[in-house]
Amino acid sequence: MTVTTEVSSATAGGVSDVAPRPRRSRRSSAHIAFLAPFLVLFLLFFLIPIGYAVYESLFKKQVSGLGLAPPTTKFAGLSNYSAVFGTASFIHGIERVLLFGIVQVPVMLVFATVLALLIDSVAARFTRFFRLAFFLPYGIPGVIAAILWSFLYLPSLSPIDSVLKSLHFGSISFLGAHTVLWSIANIVTWEYTGYNMLIIFAGLQAIPRELFESARVDGASELKIAMRIKLPLVVPSLVLTSVFSIIGTLQLFSEPQVLRAISTNIVSTYTPNLSAYNQAFTLNDPNLAAAMAVVLAVGTFILSFAFLRLTSRRSIAR
């Protein structure tokens, strides 16, 4: 955590101490009253569930013989964790989302950044319209977007397919064993590019215009301005969008869950989250599911934290 706090306090500036003496006692209790409602719920719905998941993950239900007696709950140590890491399908799920993230996140963010720069560029016209058009998909909930795209992917229904066919490009199987992951990536890209673009665009808008003007007067090209001035200044926005995208990738669930119905190539362990869900709700092993949830939470935390640490070092060096 220290790094994150360093980053924030470094960039947000020293947090001001509220002035001196008067009525110290009353004020010193005010912050508790302000913080308490959030902290109570944060404790109840964030920290305790994590603790509870860790606790549950240390137990295991055991039967004996034919198993006619109710199972007993036994302390299992870390055996659920060794089961999680020993399950090839879960590991494959992790590898799959990592591959997905390595490809999809950069593609989406580059796409979003280019769009933000284009909209911000002086040459752009109809920017209000385009901003809205790019952003629209974000207003469509993930499940709905997945349902929508599932119609567009279905061989017998797909207008994309029929257009391609009529142009003699042949037909594409969007749901094949090797393509379906990228079909999911397309849905995610479609949904979130506009959202990321807006965050980056908001960052661009906050840059004082004088910076560009003087650069322009100095004869810098728009490309140079974009690369040398604009881009470095929106690095914080890019960090934010990257972190959210990494978190989002690792929790991938609704898109594969929806597409499972129409593709024969999405197994019940396709992503770690799908594994955990099925472990709890169809395989009835809440203990193993808890271990999976813990692994997922810790893994996500470490990855996004490592990313923040890496980028903050860089920005400090800068």
Binding site: L66, G176, A177, T264, N265, I266, S268, N278, T282
Partner: peptide
């Protein structure tokens, strides 16, 4: 069997992989 959810899920996943190549 006594863990039919697991059995059928495993079977379905394996079949999906098999037909996927």
């Amino acid at each position: 069997g006594p863990i039919m959810f697991t059995t059928l899920t495993d079977m379905g996943n394996a079949f999906s992989k098999a037909t996927g190549g």
